[in-house]
Design a binder for these strands. Sequence first.
DNA 1: TTATGGATTAGCT
DNA 2: GCTAATCCATAAA
Length: 230
Amino acid sequence: MPRRIFPISESNTGSAFNQLTSADVRRTAILPREFFNRDAVTVARELLGKLLIRREGRQLLAGRIVEDEAYLGRDDPAAHAYAGRTPRNFVLFGPPGHAYVYFIYGNHYCLNVSCLGQGEGVLFRAMQPVFGIEAMARARGLDLPPLPGIAQLRMIASGPGRMSQALRITRERDNNKDLASSASGLWLADDGFRPGQILATRRIGISKAVERPLRFAVAGNPYVSGKRIQ
DNA sequence: TTATGGATTAGCT
DNA sequence: GCTAATCCATAAA
């Protein structure tokens, strides 16, 4: 049994709340391939509240997914896969549950997971740090105070580029990794936590198909990216 | 508190 | 060349 976790939207007013122990992290259940073998909208919604875990040697890093976006492949002008398979996006056309990592704006990496179908995927946009917080802050070049508040903690992984930097995700290292297996060192897991209300909004930072409500977030969670976009 | 521009590179036209 | 599924520093209000 995972230790009690407060609803993120209600009680996360201090740095200690919602952190996990290493035992908690090791006790989680890895999401199976079948989880990802569904349409991107379903996968995106179901991923909210799950844990994204990185292992580097003995070091474990983990965050709880609180925001993501669905991209619908050939049916979605905003999707990288819209124009078909290319050397960059081939992972999206492969088996479900694999990491599609791309480099954007000359600065940042973004992590996606492939889903069922031709080119469907989910972009991870924000997570709440729950384990290995110091190491993630260091990877981000942040200097945390002894008792960090939400304002500091949300700088770790509230945004797709920030998430990737916190987990040291790069295309060279992680593209095409199997996120349904801990052998890859990067995987998704369930610790029993269930988010409350889920919000659906327009996706961020795109210029095509802007009106579709394909961005999903845990309602009221302070680790969702942006200012007051909820 | 909100707005704006620079950084920096892969991929596409 | 131009744009991009972003972030950050700085400026204005």
